[in-house]
Simulated scan of single mutants.
Amino acid sequence: MIEAIFAFRAKPGKEDQLREATLAIVEPTRREEGCIQFVVLEDINTPGTFFIRETWRDQAALDEHFAQPYLKALGEIHKEILAEPLKQHTLKVYD
């Protein structure tokens, strides 16, 4: 299994827009083949700071996820409303 963790923060005043755009990809992502878990988290103490934790069957499933049109659309939105570049960690899961 592969786990990916993303961290990102909205520009001031863009918190609601980022929250809405991020939550819009939850359901279609969870329906993807190979998606085991997909969770969006927001920092309680710093609204507008988000994390996504996702678990995939394998790297091929994660690669397919990255190719989805709705994820590419979110990337375009990120260009306008993120305070800094998205941080990504891709991890191998050992059971």
Rank of each mutant, 00 (worst) to 15 (best):
M1A: 15
I2Y: 03
I2N: 02
E3V: 12
E3F: 00
A4N: 02
A4T: 11
A4R: 00
A4V: 15
A4D: 01
A4H: 02
I5L: 09
F6W: 06
F6L: 15
F8Y: 04
F8K: 01
A10V: 05
K11D: 05
K11A: 04
K11Q: 14
P12A: 03
G13M: 08
G13S: 06
E15D: 09
D16W: 06
Q17P: 00
L18M: 05
L18H: 02
R19L: 10
E20M: 05
E20L: 06
E20G: 03
A21T: 02
A21L: 05
T22K: 03
T22V: 14
T22D: 05
L23E: 15
L23D: 11
A24L: 09
A24D: 10
A24M: 09
E27G: 07
P28S: 13
P28K: 04
T29G: 11
R30I: 06
R30P: 04
R31A: 12
R31V: 04
R31T: 09
E32M: 15
I36S: 01
Q37I: 08
F38Y: 13
V39Q: 08
V39S: 06
V39M: 04
V39I: 14
L41Y: 06
E42S: 04
D43A: 10
D43H: 08
D43Q: 12
I44L: 12
N45Y: 11
N45H: 12
T46Y: 10
T46S: 14
T46Q: 14
P47F: 09
G48C: 03
G48N: 01
T49G: 04
I52R: 00
R53K: 14
R53C: 08
R53N: 09
E54F: 04
D58C: 11
Q59E: 15
A61R: 01
A61S: 15
D63Y: 05
E64L: 11
E64Y: 10
E64N: 15
E64A: 15
H65V: 13
H65G: 11
F66S: 11
Q68V: 13
Q68L: 15
P69N: 08
P69I: 11
Y70Q: 03
L71W: 10
L71A: 01
L74D: 02
L74M: 12
G75L: 10
G75V: 09
I77F: 05
I77M: 10
H78L: 07
H78Q: 14
K79C: 09
K79W: 03
E80F: 02
L82W: 01
A83C: 06
E84M: 07
E84V: 09
E84F: 07
K87Q: 15
K87I: 10
Q88Y: 04
Q88S: 13
Q88F: 07
H89Y: 15
H89T: 00
H89I: 12
T90F: 07
T90R: 09
T90G: 07
L91A: 14
L91N: 10
L91Q: 07
K92N: 12
K92P: 03
D95E: 14
D95S: 13
